[in-house]
Design a binder for these strands. Structure first.
Lengths: 185, 185
DNA sequence: GCCGGATGTCTGATTTTCAGACAGGATATA
DNA sequence: TATATCCTGTCTGAAAATCAGACATCCGGC
């Protein structure tokens, strides 16, 4: 089934985040905006932070699935940046009204989810050891987490694309190398 | 509850009607477009003609509720025309692939529903006899049915607004008179 | 005349949504 | 400090919505 109700809750939340910071949004606000019972919110989401994760994780997941090849990693990231810029107000409302711990926890989960999806998509059935998987994920997550933190701190005004471009020049894409070095034949 | 599923079915139907005539749209097409079970369609709608009625009746109802005063009847009708013009392709796809009986039955029901809502809104608690109500409804329905039929037959290209304007000049709005003549004090 | 696909109807299982109540926490107010 | 208020998260059990699957029927193409 298509979960129209869940989607409606997400949409209302985004709508409200366009209007005011996260700290001024209650569960009741969300459910009364879309006209569902408060319990229905808790049926789908543990709490508001989980709702945030859900929204951004799913968005990223969709984008990742569109670029299953390592050659297209650049295009994939570009689309993620576009997507983030489109939601700029929403993201900054969240960023500015979430405390450090919550923010880090949240961003880390989003990165973790996106990168797991990304690696699954890239590996596409190939197997590597748990250990290696962990190492690669840690590398990617740390880098992503840092990049995104920097960007958010600048109010998403930094030209993240050119920064990334320069990073790519300095340090060529090594993902495929890493994977093939780890691959169990 | 807000019936997101029902809305999704309606939306899919409209989407498909934008693409092709009614005769080429099956229940299965609709439900697979929005990803719900075929039974769910029948849970909400008797069949496709009822779905059509439902869509247009509800649209008209919403518009009517926005204009509860007899003084605003003109603005109300204008908005109905706007709404119809926005859905022009959809309406013509239906009109052109529905047989005469079905079409008349359908249009009649839509008129009936809209005018009942309209009268309820105008009366706003005042009472008139069943007989008088019937007479007024018949008058309005006949006029509406005829106007709309004409318009549809022209491919909705006729300038229905100026026609209506001229009719209003010839035959001043008599609704309020009719109601007060019938009113039970 | 037969077949494939669409329709409308039914059954019963499962999932989703609901109303209502409760304890705990935070906040404001007096 | 005490009290009131609002939000939270959790729990019940009832009700509604959605589902899969089957069936008889009808219709258009072959």
């Amino acid at each position: 089934m298509a979960n129209f109700t869940k989607k409606a809750i997400r949409d209302s939340f985004i709508k409200l985040l366009n209007e005011r910071p996260l700290s001024q949004i209650t569960v009741k606000d969300i459910v009364s905006d879309c006209g569902v019972n408060r319990n229905t919110f808790y049926y789908y989401f543990e709490d508001i932070p989980k709702l945030m994760e859900d929204i951004f994780s799913e968005d990223l997941e969709e984008i990742i699935k569109k670029y299953p090849k390592i050659e297209n990693a650049e295009a994939c990231i570009d689309e993620m940046i576009d997507s983030a810029l489109e939601q700029k107000r929403v993201i900054l409302h969240m960023y500015n009204s979430t405390n450090r711990e919550m923010y880090e926890h949240y961003l880390w989960n989003v990165c973790d989810h996106a990168i797991s999806t990304y690696l699954d998509t890239l590996l596409d059935g190939r197997k590597i050891s748990e250990n290696d998987m962990h190492a690669i994920k840690t590398y990617l997550e740390s880098f992503s987490f840092g990049m995104i933190s920097n960007w958010l701190r600048s109010g998403m005004n930094e030209d993240i694309r050119s920064t990334l471009k320069r990073i790519r020049e300095i340090k060529k894409e090594i993902m495929e190398d890493m994977i093939s070095n780890c691959e169990i034949k």
